[in-house]
Simulated scan of single mutants.
Amino acid sequence: MPQPALELANVSYAFEPGGAPALRDVTLTVERGEWVAVVGASGSGKSALAQLISGYLPRAGGGSRSGRVRVDGVDPAEAAIGEVARRVGVVFQDPDAQLVQGRVEDEVAFGPENLRVPAAELERRVADAL
């Protein structure tokens, strides 16, 4: 049986150690090809969940996580950033805030460039994508 695309088991997260949890005992399995929507009120933990799955939390944002998180079999908090980026990404509520380059071609190249795709291959991928 293939491993799930996403697996969370009893995941809790607090932005500050000992603080009130943003998430408490979340268990979720998403199989390959399955579509899932996470909905809820402002402040209900949707962004924290997405950031745990992408590996941003607790790696860059601090806080404390308990439980098991696996994306394609890998724990995004422990794997190399490039390994996580090959498996999952996040588009934030304001996608304009995610733009980092001044030209479309440079923006398209940004992700693969950070994954160290060789220049000739990078140029071909950008041209194909656009």
Rank of each mutant, 00 (worst) to 15 (best):
55 G>C: 08
107 E>V: 00
74 V>R: 14
39 V>E: 03
88 V>N: 01
81 I>D: 13
61 G>R: 07
104 V>Q: 00
49 L>I: 11
56 Y>E: 14
113 E>R: 12
106 D>G: 12
64 S>L: 12
86 R>W: 12
96 D>G: 00
92 F>G: 01
92 F>S: 04
80 A>E: 14
108 V>Q: 04
60 A>D: 11
87 R>W: 12
43 G>R: 06
66 S>V: 14
109 A>D: 03
116 R>D: 10
114 N>A: 06
86 R>H: 08
72 D>Y: 05
73 G>V: 04
60 A>I: 12
64 S>W: 14
65 R>A: 10
76 P>E: 02
50 A>K: 13
100 V>A: 10
101 Q>M: 10
36 V>N: 06
114 N>E: 03
93 Q>M: 03
121 E>T: 15
119 A>C: 06
85 A>P: 02
75 D>T: 10
105 E>H: 01
103 R>V: 02
46 K>A: 01
55 G>Y: 09
60 A>N: 13
43 G>E: 06
112 P>A: 07
64 S>R: 15
67 G>Y: 12
104 V>I: 04
36 V>R: 05
36 V>L: 14
59 R>D: 07
80 A>C: 06
116 R>W: 14
91 V>Q: 09
53 I>Y: 08
69 V>F: 03
38 V>R: 05
36 V>S: 03
48 A>H: 05
95 P>T: 04
37 A>E: 03
120 A>V: 09
60 A>M: 15
64 S>D: 13
59 R>F: 11
120 A>L: 09
102 G>D: 10
98 Q>C: 00
86 R>C: 13
38 V>L: 12
119 A>T: 13
58 P>N: 15
115 L>E: 02
46 K>F: 04
43 G>F: 03
39 V>I: 15
117 V>A: 07
117 V>S: 08
95 P>V: 00
119 A>P: 15
45 G>C: 13
109 A>H: 01
33 G>D: 04
111 G>S: 14
79 A>K: 04
85 A>D: 00
45 G>P: 10
54 S>P: 14
61 G>H: 09
59 R>A: 15
79 A>N: 01
113 E>K: 05
56 Y>H: 06
68 R>Y: 08
73 G>P: 04
108 V>M: 03
92 F>E: 01
58 P>Y: 14
122 L>M: 08
105 E>K: 04
42 S>G: 12
89 G>Y: 11
35 W>M: 09
72 D>V: 09
54 S>I: 15
33 G>I: 03
88 V>Q: 02
35 W>V: 13
97 A>P: 01
49 L>D: 11
34 E>F: 03
92 F>P: 01
38 V>F: 09
39 V>N: 00
106 D>S: 13
53 I>W: 05
115 L>A: 06
55 G>W: 10
54 S>V: 15
111 G>N: 02
40 G>M: 02
100 V>C: 11
63 G>V: 07
91 V>G: 05
45 G>L: 07
54 S>H: 11
80 A>V: 15
78 E>M: 09
37 A>Q: 02
96 D>C: 00
63 G>F: 08
44 S>I: 13
76 P>V: 06
108 V>N: 00
64 S>A: 11
44 S>T: 12
97 A>C: 00
96 D>K: 00
78 E>A: 14
41 A>F: 03
98 Q>I: 01
95 P>Y: 01
112 P>H: 02
102 G>P: 02
67 G>K: 10
86 R>D: 04
96 D>H: 00
92 F>K: 05
118 P>M: 10
45 G>D: 14
116 R>M: 13
